[in-house]
């Protein structure tokens, strides 16, 4: 059971579902269902087996040209090899962070990387303000610069426990544990039902789940 592996030609970047399953919270069948989703996303503009930035934007916004600071950050974090595209293995490993069963600590770490725009190891006040401004630009909410400064200042004074003008990973963790709603978007309940959402994986399945 679960021992049959064919050598069917797969797209570049394809990885063995059993390996991906071992490294993530997904079962083999769930990885295969994710492959169905991946095939759909990675062929929406250029059918080459990789998710390009425009395809990612198209899936998120129904608009291939809609740039968004946060979508850019998510794309960059998913692109573990930093080669400008998301490969299947990167897709599965990164989505694993969003699985309901993934430890909160992993989600907190991912969110920190997301918000550490300049990748300095700290979330700085300027970065926080840049993100608030970016969020306002994509929403209908209009706030004066003075109000934005007050929001950023207040948040920073609560999160920057050491008061050194920057939020480190430890401070971020403490802050999120006090405000768990901050990482609500790091959990996708959908991932628990992925085999139901993409049942066609059954037709293409090479491995029978042993779980």
């Amino acid at each position: 059971m679960g021992c049959y592996h064919s050598k069917k030609a797969k797209s570049p970047g394809y990885e063995d579902p059993s390996i991906l399953s071992a490294e993530t919270p997904f079962t083999v069948n769930e990885v295969e269902a994710l492959h169905e989703l991946f095939k759909k996303l990675s062929s929406s503009i250029i059918d080459d087996g990789f998710i390009h930035k425009e395809e990612f934007q198209l899936a998120l916004f129904r608009n291939r040209n809609k740039r968004n600071l946060f979508a850019d950050r998510v794309f960059d974090l998913f692109d573990l090899k930093r080669n400008g595209v998301i490969e299947f293995g990167e897709f599965v490993r990164s989505l694993g962070v969003f699985h309901p069963n993934t430890p909160t600590e992993d989600k907190i770490t991912f969110a920190f990387k997301l918000y550490d725009l300049r990748q300095t190891g700290y979330i700085e006040r300027e970065e926080l303000k840049d993100m608030v401004v970016a969020l306002l630009q994509e929403s209908d909410l209009v706030l004066s610069d003075e109000v934005i400064e007050i929001i950023v200042h207040k948040t920073f004074s609560e999160a920057d426990a050491k008061g050194d003008g920057r939020i480190d990973q430890e401070e971020w963790k403490e802050f999120v544990l006090k405000n768990p709603s901050l990482i609500k978007n790091m959990t996708l309940p959908y991932l628990k039902d992925i085999t139901v959402a993409f049942p066609s994986f059954v037709l293409n399945s090479e491995v029978e789940d042993s779980e």
Partner: peptide
């Protein structure tokens, strides 16, 4: 809710760019 009482990170977390559930929409 008055905007000044908002937590900046809470505000940011509402971004559409961070809402990956859209990836699963058919």
């Amino acid at each position: 809710m008055a905007p000044v009482t908002m937590n900046a990170f809470e505000l940011i977390s509402t971004s559409q760019g961070l809402n990956l559930s859209s990836l699963f929409e058919k």
